[in-house]
Simulated assay, not measured.
Amino acid sequence: MSDTQQTLPRLGFIGMGNMGGPMAANLVAAGYTVTGYDPVPAAAERAAAAGVRMAGTGAEAVAQADVVITMLPTGRHVLNALSGDGDTPGLLAAADGDTLFLECSTISVDDATTAHALMLETGHRGLDAPVSGGVVGAEAGTLTFMVGGAAEDFAAALPVLEVMGGRVVHCGGPGAGQAAKICNNMILGVSMIAVSEAFVLGEELGLSHQALFDVASAASGQCWALTTNCPVPGPVPASPANRDYRPGFAAALMAKDLGLAADALDSTGVSAELGRRAGEIYRNLTESGGGGEDFSAIINTIRANSTQPGPAGSAGVAGTASQRTAGQQPAEQSGTA
């Protein structure tokens, strides 16, 4: 073992999926010893190929760890993993005392604060540290981490988080990271729908995609949904629209995050008509079979639900939505808005 590996904390990593796998691989590449666990054989095999030492159970993966990272689908999965389920020992019981837990899943604020309380009750430390940046950011090590918890724990976790992320922000106390995440993704969901609606309107008015992009990307309409994840092919070559909407960030995950935002809106009494409506739109898309596509594929639903204006030819040189989308995914698969 090298001197560098001896001085770095030992890491346990639970959840080797589309996000967790690349994150763990970046930690291995930076010299960390990472012991991981994932119940899905394909995910475990990919992680092992990247140098992660795979364990047979989650408890085994965290038994010798100084820092434990979890990246799981829902709050229920997180709480079950921490506390155990039936005869399966939980991560908190299996870890040595005073282990630092970094909970990187996107879950509700209530579940995040519950998880933090469980960590403290069992003699551990913890941070909620959800991420933004999608699979591309996970692979490139450029994720944004939104972190909630004690300042001293944030300072201890920072070197590990900086390997996986390009920006790490301490947002406040326990739950603050999850609060920042759902607020950010509510902005993102609403803005992607707005950008997509504008492109469909531009098509009907005779604007080329490139012309609208060149104007809006340098004007007051500029936003991440336009300049990085543009919902039409061409203007941003790296956007999912150029690869048949294979996801960087799946529509089903956007629906999940907007559902968490809606729960927070209900609990706080905040009026947010656009945020709630965006959640309904993405939930409908997911329930209609489009959840596996990138969330920018919502533009296809908008086109499918658009009606041709009255006078013939009023759609201009771009043609009608129905003419342009011939051969694309039918409305019953794209979902309804």
Rank of each mutant, 00 (worst) to 15 (best):
A93F: 04
L92P: 03
A115C: 09
T113L: 07
N185Y: 07
S271C: 04
G279Q: 00
A198Q: 11
Q329I: 11
A261P: 02
T286G: 00
R246V: 15
R283M: 02
Y282F: 10
A194I: 08
E152T: 10
Q329M: 11
M164E: 08
L11N: 00
P235R: 04
I187A: 08
M119Q: 14
E45H: 08
P247Q: 00
S239A: 15
S288G: 15
V200E: 07
E280K: 14
G21H: 05
S208Q: 12
L285D: 00
T142W: 11
E280V: 05
G221Q: 03
T228N: 08
A216H: 03
G134C: 05
P231I: 06
Q222V: 04
L11A: 00
A211C: 11
I182D: 01
S306L: 11
E121T: 13
G86I: 04
N284A: 14
D111S: 13
E197M: 13
V232N: 07
A252C: 04
I281F: 07
G123H: 09
E203T: 10
A43H: 15
L205A: 14
A241F: 02
G123N: 10
P330E: 00
L201N: 03
A117I: 11
A211I: 09
V168K: 06
N305E: 14
V200T: 12
A112Q: 11
T106Y: 12
G172V: 03
A272K: 08
V215N: 06
R276D: 01
E152S: 13
L158R: 15
A315C: 14
F154K: 08
N184L: 07
N185Q: 15
A55G: 05
G234F: 05
G148N: 09
A65Y: 05
S217L: 06
R303S: 13
E273V: 14
G51T: 00
G15M: 00
A50E: 00
S105D: 15
S105Y: 09
A219N: 03
T320H: 05
G12V: 00
A29K: 14
E203H: 15
S208T: 15
V68L: 11
N184S: 10
G12K: 00
Y37W: 14
L265V: 12
L72K: 00
P247V: 05
P41V: 03
P233V: 08
P130A: 09
A326E: 15
S314H: 03
N242E: 02
T325K: 06
A194W: 00
S267I: 13
P73W: 07
L188A: 13
R283V: 00
D263G: 13
A157G: 12
G58R: 01
D98C: 03
G310L: 06
D244T: 07
N305C: 10
V270K: 13
T114I: 06
A255S: 01
